[in-house]
Computed example of a mutant assay.
Amino acid sequence: MPQMSPMWWEILFLLFISFYIMMNIMLYFNKKNNSIKNNKNMMKHNKQINWKW
């Protein structure tokens, strides 16, 4: 098996991929939660506005 890469390359590659996936998952849920919070704040803000037309 002369074409095989060293084991530490594979480990580094797998660690990099796993960190990348985890980071993307965390960013996705963080943005999702922020958008929900922003929507709630907007709804509260909209209720407090007294429109005078």
Rank of each mutant, 00 (worst) to 15 (best):
N34E: 15
K52S: 12
Y20G: 10
I17V: 06
N50Q: 10
N39S: 12
N41A: 11
K52W: 08
S35D: 11
K47V: 03
Y28F: 05
F19M: 14
M22Y: 11
I11H: 06
N33R: 09
M43E: 14
M23H: 14
I25A: 00
M42A: 15
L15A: 14
K32S: 13
W8R: 05
S35Y: 07
I17W: 05
N34T: 05
I17Q: 05
Q48Y: 05
Q3N: 11
E10C: 11
M23K: 15
I17Y: 04
I17K: 04
L15W: 06
K52P: 03
Q3K: 11
Q48D: 12
L15Q: 12
L27I: 01
F29H: 04
I49A: 01
S18R: 04
S18E: 03
I17M: 08
E10Q: 13
M22D: 12
P6Y: 02
S18Y: 00
I25M: 00
L12E: 11
K52C: 07
K31M: 14
P6R: 04
M43C: 10
I36C: 05
K32L: 10
M1K: 06
F19L: 15
M4K: 13
F16C: 08
H45A: 15
L27G: 09
I17T: 00
N41T: 02
L15T: 03
K32W: 14
W53N: 07
S35A: 09
M42I: 04
W53L: 02
M42N: 15
N46H: 06
E10L: 11
F13L: 08
M26S: 10
I36V: 02
Y20E: 15
N24V: 03
K31F: 14
L14W: 11
W51T: 02
I25V: 01
W9L: 10
S18Q: 05
P2Y: 04
I49T: 01
F29Q: 02
F19E: 07
S5F: 12
P2I: 03
K32N: 13
K52V: 01
L15F: 06
W51G: 04
N38L: 08
M26V: 03
F29G: 01
Y20K: 09
M26D: 10
